[in-house]
């Protein structure tokens, strides 16, 4: 069951145009996502990690076709949905859902939460109002909200409860795949773990597939079965979550993971940390060769000229580096 791919991208790319022909620098193109080939299997959780601006959110939005795709192909259960029109996508929308970062911004403050959760059921389903009410009650129980919460407004809830409402909305139509874009980042630390656990429970109960984005790497590791590390629009490393964290092969992944502050009870300085110099280059002017070479501690001449491809060097592990640590 877990082996059949539910979503697959082949050399997927997303370009944005900036400015017009008339602006000072002319019309320019940003490759926000560049040549991404990723397979998501049913029931797994793929975590996307990388610095802000690496294209992980753009990629996630392409995967549910919230953005149009510029290059490559997107396959859902083997069917090409790259260029399907909005009306052709409608039946698919039900099966691909998204949860956003800020629960208070994505919920209409003037409507009762019961209404908000019922909305997708009304739009997509052919249920009677009694059936809808029953389904809403069921969903509330699933996400750990009380039945009498349906009559409340979003502002009467805490951040964690609001995110539960957002999740209830996303799973209302029994989707197959849910994209979670920073679902716990706006929450208090003590509440994050609750939501992480809830997501795990729902995945098990409803056989969901997740694509999970968070800047907190320890949360991503906890939630994900597989991880894709992105840098400037491309995947530089991919593999099972625990393996990538334990033995990362790409120097960027190593630096990223080493930068995560962890609670240590030993005198400080025992953990080796790689501090990257400089900022992420502008995607408008990406560096030649390997995109990471200006910040890479082990870059040589070849990295400046030749761009490494994402290659499988061991079953399940892929890396895009001329000199991976393997």
């Amino acid at each position: 069951m877990t082996d059949s791919p539910i979503l697959e991208t082949r050399s997927l790319g997303k370009r944005f145009s900036i400015g017009t022909r008339f602006s000072a620098e002319g019309k320019r193109t940003v490759h926000a996502v560049d040549n991404v080939s990723l397979t998501v299997r049913r029931g797994e959780t793929v975590g996307l990690v990388g610095e802000s601006g690496c294209g992980k959110s753009t990629l996630a939005r392409c995967l549910v076709r919230l953005y149009d795709i510029s290059d490559g192909e997107l396959l859902f259960e083997g069917e090409d949905i790259t260029s399907k029109s909005l009306s052709e996508l409608r039946p698919l929308r039900r099966r691909l859902q998204m949860v956003f970062q800020d629960p208070s911004a994505s919920l209409n403050p003037r409507r009762r939460v019961g209404d908000l959760v019922a909305e997708p059921l009304r739009i997509h389903g052919k249920l009677s109002s009694r059936e809808i009410a029953a389904r809403v009650a069921e969903l509330f129980e699933l996400v750990g909200l009380l039945p009498d919460h349906v009559m409340r407004y979003p502002h009467e809830f805490s951040g964690g409860q609001r995110q539960r409402v957002g999740i209830a909305r996303a799973i209302a139509l029994n989707p197959d795949l849910v994209v979670l874009d920073e679902p716990v980042s706006a929450l208090d630390v003590s509440v994050q773990a609750q939501i992480v656990n809830l997501l795990a429970d729902l995945q098990e109960k409803l056989n969901l597939t997740y694509i999970f984005i968070a800047h907190d790497l320890s949360v991503v590791r906890q939630v994900s079965t597989r991880i894709a590390v992105m840098y400037l629009g491309s995947i530089v490393e991919e593999g099972p979550a625990e393996e990538v964290f334990a033995t990362s092969a790409h120097p960027y992944s190593q630096a990223l993971i080493s930068a995560v502050p962890v609670v240590e009870t030993t005198p400080s300085g025992t953990r080796k940390r790689i501090i990257l110099t400089g900022d992420v280059p502008s995607p408008l002017k990406p560096p030649s060769g390997c995109r990471f070479h200006p910040r890479c501690p082990i870059a040589v001449e070849r990295c400046r000229t030749e761009r490494p491809e994402l290659k499988e060097y061991r079953p399940g592990r892929k890396v895009a580096c001329h000199f991976p640590t393997v």
């Binding site: 003590s190 773990a193 992480v196 320890s218 949360v219 590791r221 906890q222 625990e242 995560v260």
Partner: peptide, 10 residues
């Protein structure tokens, strides 16, 4: 409640 960065995942 902080997820570990190394070792077994709870």
């Amino acid at each position: 409640s902080i997820p570990p960065l190394t070792g077994e995942k709870p």
